[in-house]
Protein backbone atom coordinates (compact mmCIF):
# COMPACT_ATOMS: atom_id res chain seq x y z
CA UNK A 1 0.00 0.00 0.00
CA UNK A 2 2.71 2.42 1.01
CA UNK A 3 4.60 1.33 -2.09
CA UNK A 4 1.69 2.32 -4.32
CA UNK A 5 1.32 5.69 -2.61
CA UNK A 6 5.00 6.52 -3.06
CA UNK A 7 5.03 5.21 -6.63
CA UNK A 8 2.16 7.43 -7.71
CA UNK A 9 3.53 10.38 -5.77
CA UNK A 10 6.99 10.23 -7.35
CA UNK A 11 5.75 9.27 -10.81
CA UNK A 12 3.21 12.07 -10.83
CA UNK A 13 5.79 14.61 -9.71
CA UNK A 14 8.25 13.26 -12.26
CA UNK A 15 5.85 13.50 -15.19
CA UNK A 16 4.63 16.96 -14.16
CA UNK A 17 8.21 18.18 -13.90
CA UNK A 18 9.05 16.61 -17.27
CA UNK A 19 6.12 18.45 -18.81
CA UNK A 20 7.42 21.64 -17.27
CA UNK A 21 10.89 20.95 -18.76
CA UNK A 22 9.42 20.89 -22.24
CA UNK A 23 6.95 23.75 -22.01
CA UNK A 24 8.73 26.28 -19.84
CA UNK A 25 9.62 29.57 -21.45
CA UNK A 26 12.76 30.16 -19.43
CA UNK A 27 15.55 27.61 -19.98
CA UNK A 28 16.71 28.17 -16.41
CA UNK A 29 13.37 26.93 -15.09
CA UNK A 30 13.55 23.98 -17.49
CA UNK A 31 16.89 22.92 -16.05
CA UNK A 32 15.57 23.21 -12.51
CA UNK A 33 12.52 21.15 -13.49
CA UNK A 34 14.87 18.54 -14.89
CA UNK A 35 16.50 18.50 -11.46
CA UNK A 36 13.13 17.56 -9.96
CA UNK A 37 12.79 14.80 -12.57
CA UNK A 38 16.22 13.44 -11.57
CA UNK A 39 15.39 13.37 -7.87
CA UNK A 40 12.02 11.66 -8.44
CA UNK A 41 13.76 9.10 -10.67
CA UNK A 42 16.32 8.49 -7.93
CA UNK A 43 13.44 7.83 -5.51
CA UNK A 44 11.94 5.34 -8.00
CA UNK A 45 15.35 3.65 -8.30
CA UNK A 46 15.45 3.27 -4.52
CA UNK A 47 12.00 1.67 -4.64
CA UNK A 48 13.39 -0.75 -7.24
CA UNK A 49 16.26 -1.57 -4.84
CA UNK A 50 18.87 -0.02 -7.13
CA UNK A 51 20.53 2.00 -4.38
CA UNK A 52 23.87 2.55 -6.10
CA UNK A 53 22.23 3.68 -9.31
CA UNK A 54 20.06 6.09 -7.34
CA UNK A 55 23.16 7.59 -5.74
CA UNK A 56 24.83 7.87 -9.16
CA UNK A 57 21.74 9.55 -10.53
CA UNK A 58 21.89 12.28 -7.90
CA UNK A 59 25.69 12.66 -7.95
CA UNK A 60 26.34 12.54 -11.69
CA UNK A 61 23.17 13.85 -13.28
CA UNK A 62 21.98 16.35 -10.71
CA UNK A 63 25.48 17.19 -9.53
CA UNK A 64 27.47 17.36 -12.75
CA UNK A 65 25.39 17.36 -15.92
CA UNK A 66 22.75 19.85 -14.81
CA UNK A 67 25.36 22.19 -13.33
CA UNK A 68 27.00 22.15 -16.76
CA UNK A 69 23.69 23.14 -18.33
CA UNK A 70 23.25 25.94 -15.81
CA UNK A 71 26.77 27.23 -16.51
CA UNK A 72 26.15 27.33 -20.24
CA UNK A 73 22.76 29.04 -19.91
CA UNK A 74 24.19 31.71 -17.63
CA UNK A 75 27.27 32.07 -19.84
CA UNK A 76 25.24 32.65 -22.98
CA UNK A 77 22.83 35.10 -21.34
CA UNK A 78 20.29 35.01 -24.14
CA UNK A 79 17.24 37.14 -24.69
CA UNK A 80 14.22 35.27 -23.31
CA UNK A 81 12.16 36.11 -26.37
CA UNK A 82 14.41 34.11 -28.68
CA UNK A 83 14.28 31.15 -26.34
CA UNK A 84 10.51 30.98 -26.02
CA UNK A 85 9.84 30.35 -29.68
CA UNK A 86 8.33 26.96 -30.33
CA UNK A 87 8.18 25.06 -33.55
CA UNK A 88 4.41 25.34 -33.93
CA UNK A 89 4.64 24.22 -37.51
CA UNK A 90 5.56 20.66 -36.59
CA UNK A 91 2.86 20.31 -33.94
CA UNK A 92 0.60 18.21 -36.14
CA UNK A 93 3.30 15.98 -37.57
CA UNK A 94 4.93 15.62 -34.19
CA UNK A 95 1.61 14.84 -32.53
CA UNK A 96 0.76 12.13 -35.03
CA UNK A 97 4.22 10.59 -34.82
CA UNK A 98 4.18 10.73 -31.05
CA UNK A 99 0.73 9.18 -30.84
CA UNK A 100 1.86 6.28 -33.00
CA UNK A 101 5.04 5.84 -31.00
CA UNK A 102 3.24 5.91 -27.65
CA UNK A 103 0.61 3.46 -28.90
CA UNK A 104 3.40 1.15 -30.07
CA UNK A 105 5.14 1.35 -26.70
CA UNK A 106 1.95 0.76 -24.74
CA UNK A 107 0.98 -2.18 -26.95
CA UNK A 108 4.40 -3.76 -26.42
CA UNK A 109 4.21 -3.19 -22.67
CA UNK A 110 0.76 -4.69 -22.33
CA UNK A 111 1.69 -7.61 -24.56
CA UNK A 112 4.68 -8.29 -22.34
CA UNK A 113 2.68 -7.93 -19.14
CA UNK A 114 0.05 -10.34 -20.44
CA UNK A 115 2.64 -13.11 -20.71
CA UNK A 116 3.83 -12.97 -17.14
CA UNK A 117 1.80 -10.93 -14.73
CA UNK A 118 4.86 -8.77 -14.22
CA UNK A 119 4.84 -8.96 -10.47
CA UNK A 120 8.08 -7.78 -8.88
CA UNK A 121 8.93 -10.83 -6.84
CA UNK A 122 10.82 -10.11 -3.69
CA UNK A 123 12.66 -13.42 -3.65
CA UNK A 124 14.70 -13.09 -6.84
CA UNK A 125 15.29 -9.38 -6.47
CA UNK A 126 18.88 -8.33 -7.11
CA UNK A 127 20.50 -6.27 -4.44
CA UNK A 128 21.56 -2.99 -5.90
CA UNK A 129 24.12 -2.26 -3.22
CA UNK A 130 27.50 -0.77 -4.09
CA UNK A 131 29.10 -4.11 -3.33
CA UNK A 132 26.87 -6.14 -5.64
CA UNK A 133 27.08 -3.68 -8.52
CA UNK A 134 30.82 -3.15 -8.08
CA UNK A 135 31.48 -6.88 -8.03
CA UNK A 136 29.65 -7.31 -11.31
CA UNK A 137 31.17 -4.19 -12.83
CA UNK A 138 34.75 -5.21 -12.17
CA UNK A 139 34.36 -8.86 -13.08
CA UNK A 140 31.85 -9.50 -15.83
CA UNK A 141 31.75 -5.99 -17.30
CA UNK A 142 35.39 -5.00 -16.81
CA UNK A 143 36.26 -4.44 -20.48
CA UNK A 144 33.20 -2.26 -21.25
CA UNK A 145 33.95 -0.34 -18.07
CA UNK A 146 37.50 0.36 -19.19
CA UNK A 147 36.29 1.29 -22.65
CA UNK A 148 34.06 4.00 -21.15
CA UNK A 149 37.23 5.88 -20.28
CA UNK A 150 37.94 6.20 -24.00
CA UNK A 151 34.51 7.75 -24.55
CA UNK A 152 35.10 10.22 -21.73
CA UNK A 153 38.58 11.01 -23.07
CA UNK A 154 37.20 11.56 -26.57
CA UNK A 155 34.52 13.86 -25.14
CA UNK A 156 37.09 15.86 -23.18
CA UNK A 157 39.35 16.26 -26.20
CA UNK A 158 36.39 17.19 -28.39
CA UNK A 159 35.07 19.77 -25.94
CA UNK A 160 38.48 21.36 -25.43
CA UNK A 161 39.19 21.48 -29.17
CA UNK A 162 35.80 23.03 -29.90
CA UNK A 163 36.12 25.50 -27.06
CA UNK A 164 39.60 26.66 -28.02
CA UNK A 165 38.79 27.26 -31.67
CA UNK A 166 39.27 30.91 -32.52
CA UNK A 167 37.04 32.84 -34.85
CA UNK A 168 39.19 33.21 -38.00
CA UNK A 169 40.64 36.72 -38.17
CA UNK A 170 39.31 38.88 -40.95
CA UNK A 171 42.01 40.13 -43.30
Amino acid sequence: MAEAVFFYLFTGAMLAAAWSVVFNRQPLYSVLSLLVVMFCLAALFVMLQAYFVAALQVLLYAGAVLVLFLFVIMLLNLAPEALARMRVFTWQGGGALLGLWLAFLLARIFAASAQDEGALSAASAPRGSVEAVGQLLFEKYLIPFELTSFIILAAIIGAVTLGKREVPAKR
Binding site: A18, P27, A82, V88, G94
Partner: peptide, 15 residues
Protein backbone atom coordinates in the same frame (compact mmCIF):
# COMPACT_ATOMS: atom_id res chain seq x y z
CA UNK B 1 7.07 10.47 -25.01
CA UNK B 2 7.36 13.82 -23.24
CA UNK B 3 11.03 13.93 -24.26
CA UNK B 4 10.09 13.22 -27.88
CA UNK B 5 7.53 16.05 -27.79
CA UNK B 6 10.26 18.39 -26.60
CA UNK B 7 12.72 17.40 -29.31
CA UNK B 8 10.04 17.79 -31.98
CA UNK B 9 8.61 21.11 -30.83
CA UNK B 10 11.41 23.16 -29.29
CA UNK B 11 13.74 25.12 -31.53
CA UNK B 12 16.43 26.04 -29.08
CA UNK B 13 19.49 23.77 -29.20
CA UNK B 14 19.80 23.87 -25.41
CA UNK B 15 16.21 22.76 -24.93
Amino acid sequence: AIGVVGVLTRRNVLM
